[in-house]
Each structure stands twice: as C-alpha cells, then as structure tokens.
Nucleic acid binder design. Sequence first.
DNA 1: AGGTTCGGTAACAGTTGTGTAACGGCTCGG
DNA 2: CCGAGCCGTTACACAACTGTTACCGAACCT
Lengths: 227, 227
Amino acid sequence: MPVHILLIDDDANIRASLGMVLRQEGYTVSEAGSGEEALNSFHLHPADVVLVDLMLPGVDGFEVTRQLRRSSDVPVIVVSARTDTHDIVAGLEAGADDYLTKPVMAKELSARIRALMRRAMSTSREGPVICVGDLEIRPDAGTVHRGGVELALTRTEFRLLCELASRPGSVMDRPQLLNRVWGYDYFGDTRLVDVHIGRLRAKVERDPSRPEVVVTVRGLGYKLQGL
Amino acid sequence: MPVHILLIDDDANIRASLGMVLRQEGYTVSEAGSGEEALNSFHLHPADVVLVDLMLPGVDGFEVTRQLRRSSDVPVIVVSARTDTHDIVAGLEAGADDYLTKPVMAKELSARIRALMRRAMSTSREGPVICVGDLEIRPDAGTVHRGGVELALTRTEFRLLCELASRPGSVMDRPQLLNRVWGYDYFGDTRLVDVHIGRLRAKVERDPSRPEVVVTVRGLGYKLQGL
DNA sequence: AGGTTCGGTAACAGTTGTGTAACGGCTCGG
DNA sequence: CCGAGCCGTTACACAACTGTTACCGAACCT
C-alpha cells in the first residue's frame, strides 16, 4: 500500500520540484494550489501525510491545518518561506506536527516525513488488515479471522498465507515461496510447499477438497483468489 | 500529573538556561551531563519527553537516542549546534522525533514540545485505567483489579502486563518484551519471559491451565486477548 | 486408452517451542 | 542475622509443529 502525500503550495514550480523529490522516495503525490482545493481533495481522497505552505491565496496554511485537524489526525508538516519564530509557533499551535523553512533540503524533508510517520503509526490503535475473500489477515496480531472466528494457523502457514496475500491474484511458484517463506536457496524438488498448502487449506477453505481461496495453477504454483 | 522532561547536555550553562525555560512552562525537569547518566536516569525514572544534545562525552546523542528507542516510545527531540543536513537526517534516523538547532528560541522549543506531546499522547495514553476482559489496570496507581478485588502482582509481573496491555491484541515477541520490560539487549535464548508469563497467569487467569487473557501465539510470542 | 507428470494427503519421526517445578541468589525489613 | 518475598536460571516433560516419504488420483499428452 503506497503512502500518499498531499502537497499544498500556490507556486507550481515548488509543487513540481517537491513532488519529484517525494515521488522518487516512492510516495504517491497529489497536489493542490489553494486551500480550498486542498481541503476538497483531502475529503475525497485522504492522504497519509500533508505538506502545506503557509502563504496561500484565500484560505491560508494556518486555516488549512486547523480545518484538517478538525476531522483528521493526519500528520501535517508546514513548509514555508517564513522563518519567524512567531510563524513557527503559530503553525504548530494550529495543529501542525512539524515546520520546515524553505529552501528545504530533500534529504531532511524525507527524514522528517519518515520520523513523523513512524510516530503516527506507533500510536495507531489498530494495525493494518488485509482482506481476501472473507478472510481478514492481521499481520500485526498474527491472526486470521473468517466470519468473526479466529483460525489457528501455525507460523509457517501464516507466513505462507501472508506471502500469497501480498500479491493477491498473481501466481507464485514454488521456488519463490520457498525463498520468501523459508529463506531457502533451493532448487531441487521437495513437496514441502504442497504439504503446507494442504495444511493451510484444511484450515482456511470452506471445503478443502474444492479450494476457493488458495488456488492451484497447474505447472506454475499457487495464487490467492482475489475476492 | 506534571509532565517530566529529561534534559541531556554536557554544558551546564545550557542545561541551566533551557531548564529554566522549561520549568517556567510548568514542566518538571531532570538533567544529565552525559549519555550514561541519561540512560541510567531514564531507567530509574522515565521521562515524558527527552531533549538530547548530540555532542556528548562518551555515549553520544545518536547512541542515546537509539538506546532509548530500544526500550521506549518516549518523544525525543535533538537539540544540537550542528546544522548540517547530514546530522539532522542521522538524528531522525536514529529515532528522534524532531531536531532543533542551537541557539533555540524558547517559544519555538515549547511549541514543538507541545506539538510532539499532542501527537504522542493522542492515542497512546490509555488514560487512567485500561480494561482488558474483566481486568482493570491502573498504570499510575500500579494496581490491577478483577471483580473489585485487587490482585497482588509483583513489579515485574505488572510491567509485563502493562507492556502487553499497551497494544492489546497485537503479538509481542520475546526480544521485544525483554527490551521493554527488562531493558535487556537480546542475547540468545532465555526462558525468563516464559517463567514470568506463567507467574502472571497464575494470578490473572481464572483457569491458569487454559489462559484466556494472556494468550500464547506459538512461534511468535504472547498477546493480550483484546475484547 | 495408456503412459507420464503433477498435485493432494496420510503417516511418521525428528525437531522445536512451551509450561512448570525446583533451586539458589538477592534485597529488604525486622 | 534471619526469614520472606521476588527474581533469574536450569531442567525436564509434554505438546505442537515441521519436513520427508510414499502412495494415489487427477490432469495432460500423444
């Protein structure tokens, strides 16, 4: 799941250069040139991090921050040309988590984003949940639920399932699975994967004799039936 | 409950002036002049926020930050004379939440502390009482009640329980628990955690032979049954 | 259909993980 | 100095998990 950043600045050049830096870091980026645009955009498609300039036409950066805070805990970083302590304090008081002054160093910006996300994640109550079909996989809790009941998977089964779930719908062959689940660097033939797939099915499938979730692709490997 | 700040700097003048600023803001402050002193102090009396200088004799600020992170989620702000982007990035990567360059503006420092505490407290502070199943845990009071009666836990048992309760439902593995409860670095295998889990269960579980609260996740660790 | 390959699964034995009892060291208060 | 409680280590028994093998049926090919 890519991390999404909303970038708010009225200067298209700055948006372009910051955007490029962020995209290179692997983030997806959407841009807004005004406060109104930003708030609308955020409502439609909430971001994981917001970068906001203070000087915006219309609704300024302070106000954008306050509005965001009203409905969201999203991490907000102010990026502004204004270096005055008064502005910094006002930005943070408005609800921002950090304040950077232009010109920003790319490395510093991304380090600060990482630090902030780390902090924001660590306090989030619920870990991520991966849903495949009627399965709910919680890598964090190490549990799999189906219809509210917890399935008792072993560690290997769980890792196998997670590995398959990391790319639902696409086939993974045996060497690949051996590598990623067992860490083996192994070619020859072993039925290891098959056996564990079988054990996994016994717990995961409604009717293990007719698999609907963990599907065999003959001659290739296995895949998770996306949906 | 007053907010407590640990201030680490080898320059007594800076400690004095920053300390004064912080005390005026209503914080209680303890000071340390070296990394070793700071880590010892933190272990004895954990702070709510840590301010650390980078240039320290012996264990430097980077290392202090890393060590703290190993056993705690405490908010850490680096306060350093070094303005180089490389240092900023390294500080944040080491686990710091923010990085300020000297000379620091008092107003900015306190605004950043407030912003960070707001973020850190937003969901992590469980309030005065954590309830798990029919257990009532009061971290401040150091007590656990079940059905109105107080359970007599030892300090270790209590910390273990609190640690598990900090993320109910999420599995915590043994190294993690060793770090956070005992402050150990992980060295090989020890049954220490298991034994104390057993002792904790003897007091906490209705039927210790069939645990419902402190649940084993084989191959991974233990978790508190959220409910 | 017959031969061949591939996948599913039962059985088993070896390995690993976990619960717990027991023991000695330590601290603290009398 | 002595006992009580707590802590960390060790040892052992038992349960759960793992990887291998063997056998069988299904799918594929000619």
